[in-house]
């Protein structure tokens, strides 16, 4: 199992390197560069100054030379300096990744609790109005775009006169402000996850509870609640974990929008600003970070199969 997961992760990293080459070349085809942006508000700028600035940043060199230079840096763990801020890109990524991860992890947590809870409840109440209501709710929430949900949340909060404190504060310095800032966007993100999870949990539960070993457990006199938790849920978790993995990708996509709506300085906003400014090293690093997160999540999902079901661990190794 471990070798399987690791092989996948290593492959992922190789793939990521290929992505970075394509990215590096592609972004240089987008018209406009950072020098235009830096001097956009200047009146007294000469073409010579523009050329001088480009040369200082190495933007006048052939793309391949630039790539060789950058790749050599990356291999030594140096992502380079932002053209825009002049500061190390790694610092910026480190700062921006915190709110993004915080949002996604919170959203996954909320989504799991709500979704798995609703799924188990629906499977217990199968055929009752409660089941129907939960299924309908999950169908609807699966269709509501996170974009709209975010805007509605913001409108709703404004309507009741509650204001999320701004600007964003890290949890480590101002925990209370931070909680207020991330809880609403995380909720807006989580409902879609919850909807997807509840549907899957429900059907997985129904499948498992019909299985022989559950009947056997019941015959042994285990109480129904105990059956669900110990046997049913544990077995139903395998497909749920797979789904969590794919949902994480959706969530990361969602954070790009939600960060924008709620003004959270995460990876999505960083990527956006760096595209706006043509800050190549930062764009590259931000995109690679998204890729890296995806690989890590896939690795975790692979490993967790084994933790939940030892048979998979054996089968795959």
């Amino acid at each position: 199992m471990l070798t399987f997961a690791l092989r996948r992760a290593v492959l992922g990293v190789i793939v990521l390197m290929a992505v970075s080459v394509m990215l590096f070349v592609a972004i240089r085809f987008v018209p406009g560069d950072i020098v235009n942006q830096q001097l956009s508000e200047a009146g007294a700028v000469t073409p010579e100054l523009l050329a001088q600035k480009r040369a200082e940043m190495g933007l006048d060199q052939p793309v391949l030379t630039q790539f060789a230079h950058w790749a050599a840096g990356v291999l030594h763990g140096d992502l380079g300096n932002s053209l825009w801020t002049g500061r190390p890109v790694s610092d910026q990524i480190r700062t921006a990744i915190v709110p993004t991860l915080q949002l996604s992890i919170l959203a996954i947590a909320f989504g799991s609790v709500l979704g798995i809870g609703a799924g188990v409840a629906a499977s217990l109440w199968i055929g009752t109005p409660g089941d129907v209501a939960l299924r309908m709710a999950s169908t609807v929430f699966l269709a509501v775009p996170q974009l709209w949900l975010g805007l509605l949340t913001l409108s709703g909060l404004a309507a009741i006169g509650y204001y999320i404190p701004l600007p964003y504060r890290p949890f480590t310095t101002e925990p209370w402000a931070n909680v207020q800032q991330v809880i609403f966007p995380a909720l807006a993100l989580s409902l879609g996850v919850a909807a997807a999870l509840s549907r899957l949990t429900r059907s997985a539960m129904l499948e498992v509870t019909g299985a022989d070993f559950i009947r056997a457990a019941r015959a042994r006199g285990v109480t129904p609640g105990g059956i669900y938790v110990r046997h049913g849920l544990k077995n139903a978790l395998i497909p749920v974990i797979t789904l969590l993995g794919t949902q994480f990708g959706n969530l990361l996509s969602g954070t790009v929008i939600i960060e924008r709506i709620f003004n959270i300085p995460g990876l999505g906003n960083l990527l956006f600003e760096s595209v706006d400014n043509r800050d190549y090293p930062t764009i590259q690093a931000a995109v690679l970070t998204y890729g890296f997160i995806t690989i890590v999540v896939n690795l975790l999902v692979d490993l967790s199969y084994g933790a939940v079901d030892p048979r998979i661990r054996e089968a795959r190794s």
Partner: peptide, 19 residues
């Protein structure tokens, strides 16, 4: 396919569209 799939789909679309 894996290369296309390493990025969250919106990030990928966003990037292509922006380009």
């Amino acid at each position: 396919v894996e290369a296309l799939d390493t990025l969250p789909s919106l990030v990928l679309s966003l990037f292509i569209a922006a380009m």
